[in-house]
């Protein structure tokens, strides 16, 4: 049982686009400090919208977002980044005309709130940990896909997050590359950063996370330890498209 203030509380959040049907329906989710949470669900289940709402890119229609006990619902994306929410994007959005080093420097100077010298040292440290040592002066737009994904993660770390949102960071990678990224994420998590990781590669996700939340039509349909959650009839039916196994 968790007695600490949650790193994140998504409290009864609903979200719809324009006048359309709700993409998130009164959704409540709690993430605890140091937790590594996986989020899965079929396309259109609201996963990326959930990240948009948490990170401040999308305002919810109702409900609240609390980060480390503080209500951040009214804050924009940049303020939330400064408040400790780091995120990556499903399609890498590197600052392509800037170098790898500068990509990280933006996060360290702005969201990280570091002075020039501190930011430089922090960036060096992250470059080493994420495998960019020696390639810091490369133009981000010239990097191959795996490195652009890695840069997404490195750049999010430069913001000094207490909560990290990873949106399909292993998508488009080979199995080996995906496992490499997963290893990096586990390492980040063991150092105390709470992580929410949306991923379609379920086997990669289950190898790393301690808890999985399954979204379906804007609601949480299962939440728990990876193996148990994946075995629940609702998940098998809705997410995996399999008939539920009925109890004898």
């Amino acid at each position: 049982m968790h007695s600490l203030t949650p790193s994140l509380l998504v409290d009864s959040v609903s979200k719809s686009y324009g006048g359309g049907p709700p993409v998130l329906k009164n959704l409540t989710l709690e993430v605890h400090p140091g937790e590594l949470l996986g989020v899965i669900g079929p396309n259109g289940s609201g996963k990326t919208t959930l990240f948009g709402v948490i990170a401040g890119q999308l305002p919810p229609n109702s409900g609240r977002i609390l980060v480390n006990g503080q209500d951040v619902t009214a804050l924009g994306a940049s303020e939330r980044a400064k408040g400790g929410i780091g995120r990556t994007f499903q399609v890498p959005q590197s600052f392509s005309d800037m170098t790898v080093y500068e990509n990280l420097l933006v996060g360290a100077r702005y969201a990280g709130g570091l002075g020039k010298n501190e930011a430089v040292e922090a960036v060096y440290s992250i470059l080493d940990k994420t495998g960019f040592d020696g390639r810091a002066e490369m133009r981000a737009g010239d990097l191959p896909l795996l490195d652009r994904k890695r840069l997404e993660l490195a750049r999010a770390l430069a913001t000094r997050p207490s909560l990290l949102l990873l949106d399909e960071i292993a998508g488009g990678l080979t199995d080996d590359e995906a496992m490499e990224i997963a290893g990096l994420i586990k390492e980040v998590n063991t150092q105390g950063i709470a992580v929410i990781w949306i991923e379609h590669l379920v086997h990669v996700l289950t190898s790393a996370v301690s808890r999985i939340v399954v979204l379906g039509e804007g609601k949480i349909i299962a939440d728990g330890a990876p193996q148990e959650t994946m075995a629940t009839p609702a998940v098998r039916q809705i997410y995996l498209g399999m008939e539920p196994e009925l109890d004898a």
Binding site: G76, A77, R155
Partner: peptide
């Protein structure tokens, strides 16, 4: 300056710049 860093980041991606703490 730091401002220029944010400006150049914003030129490449508004959303990513915001996620890095740049108030675009």
């Amino acid at each position: 300056s730091r401002f220029g860093l944010g400006l150049r980041a914003m030129r490449d991606s508004d959303a990513a710049a915001e996620a890095m703490g740049v108030k675009t």
